[in-house]
C-alpha cells in the first residue's frame, strides 16, 4: 500500500471524503484488500485510544500468546531430568529475573568508571557516613586500591566473574532460604506428619 492509500483509509475513517462515488470506491478497496483492512483496524484503534475509548485489550492478547507459547514448549521435565545429574548440580541455578546479568552490567560500569576517574566516592554514600561514623577510617577504599595496581584486562575479567559469583550465590541462597522457611512453616503447622515429598 502506498502513502496515498493510507491517507485514503484515514480519510474514510474520519468520514472526510465528500464525494460519495469516491467513498464507495474506497469502501470497495477496503473490503477487497487485506492489507487495507489491517490499516483500517489500526487507524480505528488509534482513534479510539486517542478518544480514550479503547478498552485495555492488550493484556488479553498477550496472555493468549503466552498460553500458546507455553503449549509449544517442550515438556521441561523430559529435557531436564536427564541432565540434572551430579555434574550439572553446580550450575543448577541462574537467578530468575536475571540478577546476575544485571549485576554484571552494573559492575562493569562501576569498575570502568573507577579506572578513569580517581577520587570522589559516590555522593550518595557520603551523607550516610556522617550519621554512621565508621571509626574514622575511609570506608570505601576501592578507588585507591584499584588505582595503585591497575589490573590487566584478564585480571579484571576474572575479578568481575568472582564478584558475579558472589551475587549469584547470594540469590541462590535467598531462594533456598525461602524454601527452608516454607518447610519450617509447614512442619510447624503439621508437626507429627512426615513430609511425603
Amino acid at each position: 500500500m502506498t502513502n496515498r492509500s493510507f491517507e485514503q483509509v484515514s480519510a474514510l475513517l474520519d468520514d472526510a471524503i465528500a464525494d460519495t462515488r469516491e467513498q464507495a470506491q474506497q469502501l470497495d478497496t477496503l473490503l477487497s484488500d487485506n492489507e487495507a483492512q489491517q490499516v483500517w483496524a489500526r487507524y480505528a484503534l488509534y482513534g479510539r485510544v486517542l478518544k480514550g475509548e479503547a478498552a485495555a485489550q492488550a493484556p488479553a492478547d498477550i496472555s493468549a500468546m503466552v498460553a500458546a507459547r507455553i503449549r509449544q514448549e517442550a515438556p521441561p521435565s523430559q529435557v531436564v531430568q536427564g541432565r540434572f545429574g551430579k555434574h550439572r548440580m553446580a550450575r543448577w541455578l541462574r537467578p530468575a529475573g536475571s540478577v546476575a546479568i544485571a549485576a554484571s552490567v552494573a559492575l562493569v560500569a562501576v569498575l570502568t568508571v573507577q579506572q578513569s576517574q580517581p577520587v570522589a566516592p559516590e555522593q550518595s554514600v557520603e551523607p550516610a557516613f556522617a550519621t554512621n561514623p565508621l571509626g574514622g577510617r575511609s570506608p570505601v577504599s576501592y578507588n585507591t586500591v584499584l588505582q595503585q595496581n591497575a589490573p590487566s584486562e584478564a585480571e579484571r575479567a576474572q575479578q568481575l566473574r568472582l564478584l558475579q559469583s558472589y551475587m549469584l550465590d547470594h540469590s541462590q541462597q535467598l531462594q533456598l532460604s525461602l524454601q527452608a522457611q516454607q518447610l519450617n512453616e509447614q512442619s510447624e503447622a503439621a508437626a507429627p506428619q512426615k513430609d511425603d515429598n
Binding site: 549485576a103 559516590e122 570505601v140 577504599s141 576501592y142 595496581n149 568472582l162 550465590d169
Partner: peptide
C-alpha cells in the same frame, strides 16, 4: 532484606578491597 557474608582464604580469592552500591551492594 537480606545480607550474605562470605569468609574465605585471601590467597585463593585475591580480590582488592572494594565497595559498590547498587540494587545489590557488594
Amino acid at each position: 532484606t537480606e545480607v550474605s557474608i562470605y569468609v574465605g582464604s585471601q590467597q585463593q580469592q585475591g580480590l582488592p578491597s572494594l565497595a559498590m552500591q547498587g540494587r545489590e551492594s557488594i
